[in-house]
């Protein structure tokens, strides 16, 4: 299972990838901004996308809209500090499958990921 992780913070990508490794998911592609995420999505065809909201070049919300516009139906999880109800609704309406607010506990992230991991 290939997973695309998009976040402009390298350290946040490391935190997420460590959680992925802890549940056996090692086939991971990293994007440092939204535009790169879309390009890597087209190149690698991941099975799951984890994306931040606030990123340079293209926001996570725009990434979701772009991927859904391409016809992708894979799970997309937004991992963000944006926690207001209207933002969660906007993300779900754009096509997000799930939503996780920062800060988060590692166990909670792993539980969330478990729902979408297929062997």
């Amino acid at each position: 299972m290939k997973i695309l992780v998009a976040d402009d913070s390298g350290i946040m990508r490391k935190i997420i990838i460590r959680s992925l490794h802890s549940i056996g998911m090692t086939d991971v592609v990293e994007a440092a901004n939204g535009r790169e995420a879309v390009e890597l999505f087209k190149l690698h065809g991941p099975d799951l996308v984890l994306t931040d909201w606030n990123m340079p070049e293209m926001t996570g919300l725009e990434v979701v809209q772009e991927l859904r516009g391409l016809g992708s139906q894979i799970p997309i999880i937004m991992i963000t500090t944006e926690a207001q109800q209207r933002q969660v609704i906007a993300a779900i309406q754009a096509g997000c499958t799930d939503y996780l607010t920062k800060p988060f506990e590692a166990d909670f992230l792993r539980e969330k990921l478990d729902k979408y991991i297929t062997v």
Partner: peptide, 21 residues
């Protein structure tokens, strides 16, 4: 280094982001 600066930026982002709500 760049890792430390990235870390401080992300801590700031999480504190500011969760506080504003």
């Amino acid at each position: 280094d760049s890792v430390v600066k990235d870390l401080v930026g992300e801590l700031t982002n999480m504190i500011a982001g969760s506080s504003k709500d």
